[in-house]
Design a protein around this nucleic acid. Structure first.
Lengths: 202, 202
DNA sequence: TCAATAGGGTACGTAGGCGTTCCTTAAAGT
DNA sequence: ACTTTAAGGAACGCCTACGTACCCTATTGA
């Protein structure tokens, strides 16, 4: 750092967490190292260890940071389908699913903490369920959704399928896949009248 | 091996692949090592390297081996629901999904080979789609399924959801989750008459 | 029986990464 | 201005794992 200003406090932390996220995306957790993150953040490992006791902790913090940096905006497209597509695209962009897939392999971390990736998802306050609930309540109020069909598993379904897509392709989920998930799977499951849902298609 | 007979050929290979699978299940790919597999198989790394150029290759071979060792039996419960539950339980037991989740993190392998976990699933000839096709054709013939509703994505859905469950819990999928996936999601999606499907519930 | 194959074992050198200590010095606080 | 804090950097020791070479010898094949 002889050539630039020293960063301190949250500026430095943000830079580190951004670097960690970028490294995580690039290499996956298996090849993530403290040194690679430190280099990318133009800092030293000592600085990382002052804040996070382990690589796993840093990775979790990076995912959380990235998620919080990317706020979700409640869409209002006037219809359930549009809202769903919009929110799922936001989820995809936000990277929470990506982060989870990438850090799901931290076996030691989960063993030590007695937790699972599912627990971590809750703890990261990823909030997918919250937004889904809002969208679904709207759909119910508009008479588009049959409330009796909405179960926790069905509410979680779109995000689950996004995650699976990420796991299997190692790439961002394309828009047409999101649309397919909504049109072929989700809407038919929750719609009040199948005919109504189908007529809403492009 | 001063205390036991020397194994050769396929006997030795099977032992190695079984050991590799067991190690993979226990530690995940991130902590899998040639040495740990060799030790578990009571052999030496040299022997492993004579057959597989890298750890990734060994891991892929282990998954394939385990899958092939566990044949799938076409169920005949007389009804779509029973068949689906049975086959999904077989998938779960077979470990293909587990294996895929565990080796999905082999970023270098996928980068080098220009492939994805989805490709690997096909290459491993896991066969989930084949069995699903058979079950679904049966359901169509029996009038339980609306053929127009069967898309590749919907056909793949149960296995996708099993995989997601594995990823998030790091544990074998319990029977009640399988039943939930069938009853809440898959059957409502493909059944010809919703009322018919619901009345088939336990 | 002899030759070829390969299993089992050991040792080596190398690389990479971790966790830590310690020093210099920029930046913030008093 | 002086003191405290912590960033940046370098170095150290240790450990792990890899890939390989090489040797002995059991097992199979000719």
């Amino acid at each position: 750092m002889t050539k630039r200003e020293r960063r301190r406090g949250s500026a430095l932390e943000d830079a580190i967490l951004d670097a960690a996220w970028a490294e995580l995306i690039e290499t996956g957790y298996g090849r993530l190292t403290m040194e690679s993150v430190a280099q990318r953040a133009a800092t030293s490992r000592t600085v990382l260890y002052r804040r996070w006791p382990s690589l796993a902790d840093l990775a979790v913090a990076a995912v959380r940071h990235n998620v919080r940096k990317t706020p979700v905006e409640i869409p209002d497209t006037g219809g359930l389908r549009g809202d769903l597509i919009d929110i799922l695209l936001q989820f995809a962009k936000r990277g929470a699913g990506t982060g989870l897939v990438l850090i799901a392999q931290m076996r030691d971390y989960f063993a030590e903490t007695g937790t699972t990736p599912a627990d971590l998802r809750s703890r990261l306050a990823v909030g997918e369920q919250k937004w889904m609930d809002i969208i679904l309540e709207r759909g119910i109020a508009r008479g588009e959704i049959d409330a009796a069909r909405v179960t926790p598993r069905i509410t979680a379904l779109p995000a689950d399928l996004l995650r699976n897509e990420l796991l299997m392709t190692l790439r961002p989920v394309p828009r047409d896949v999101v649309i397919e998930i909504v049109d072929q799977i989700f809407l038919p499951l929750v719609s009040k009248e199948v005919a109504t849902a189908l007529s809403g298609r492009e």
